[in-house]
């Protein structure tokens, strides 16, 4: 149990150190950075992938794109992509890092949005048109609410991806919680490594919980079929 005691010693050392809580390298500032980068990348990914997935699922055009992007995103090594973009575009701004982050988080949302819309019962579509809903209304009032569980699942998977990749991106100079881990590892400051890792893990778990809550709030009980009969 030697490692367990040193583990706790490092934690105490990291979180107990007042310097770690203040300034631009302090925990609150790093946390905020991590949140900003992840949220920015996820937001951009949602803005690209949801409309694209809706249109492809609704019209059935461009399905190849979905399949290819899904497979490619899994196969592409994140670290390699990050290094490539930084070598190509330099480190003057955060964009050389944000771009690959977005690229990697588009496919899960795209695939699931597409599958969600595609999987809506054709009878339901038919009924919607038959009652006189217009194309946009069918999409917005019927297809999206019914596909919402899958759309949110896609966003959740992307969020997992983004939080992890943001951490790796610290290697190429991006701020955020990953800094503690990367810098600590380089300088053999294990308190920093362990403390930073624990912070990132907690961060990832909180994000998951938030998505689970969003799912409960946003998805109609008629779709998730967990309504209490009054």
């Amino acid at each position: 149990m030697n490692w367990l005691t040193s583990f706790f010693a490092w934690l105490v050392e990291f979180f107990g150190n007042g310097d770690n809580w203040a300034g631009s390298g302090g925990i609150p500032a790093r946390l905020l950075e991590h949140l900003e980068f992840s949220a920015l990348a996820l937001l951009l990914a949602v803005l690209i992938a949801v409309p694209l997935g809706l249109v492809i699922g609704h019209t059935g055009r461009g399905e190849v794109l979905v399949v290819i992007s899904a497979n490619l995103a899994r196969a592409l090594p994140t670290l390699g992509l990050l290094v490539m973009f930084v070598l190509l575009l330099g480190t003057a701004s955060i964009w050389p890092v944000i771009i690959p982050l977005v690229l990697l988080s588009v496919p899960p949302i795209l695939v699931n949005t597409y599958e969600g819309v595609k999987g809506v019962d054709p009878e339901l579509r038919d009924a919607a048109y038959g009652m006189g809903l217009r194309g946009g209304q069918v999409l917005g009032r019927v297809l999206v609410p019914v596909a919402l569980p899958l759309i949110l699942l896609g966003c959740r998977l992307s969020a997992i991806q983004v939080v992890a990749t943001t951490t790796v991106a610290s290697y190429t100079g991006l701020g955020g919680l990953g800094r503690y881990v990367i810098d600590g590892f380089a300088t053999k400051d294990y308190a920093s490594v362990v403390g930073g890792s624990v912070l990132i893990v907690l961060f990832a778990l909180v994000v998951q919980v938030l998505f689970a809550l969003a799912q409960r709030v946003a998805v109609s009980p008629g779709v998730s079929q967990r309504s209490k009969v009054r």
């Binding site: 009878e123 339901l124 048109y129 009652m131 006189g132």
Partner: peptide
């Protein structure tokens, strides 16, 4: 759409909106 709003339409599985 205007035409359809003035015509009731009933299909086999009812096609109710689950949400």
């Amino acid at each position: 759409p205007t035409l359809r709003r003035g015509i009731g339409y009933v299909i086999q599985q009812a096609g109710l909106f689950p949400h």
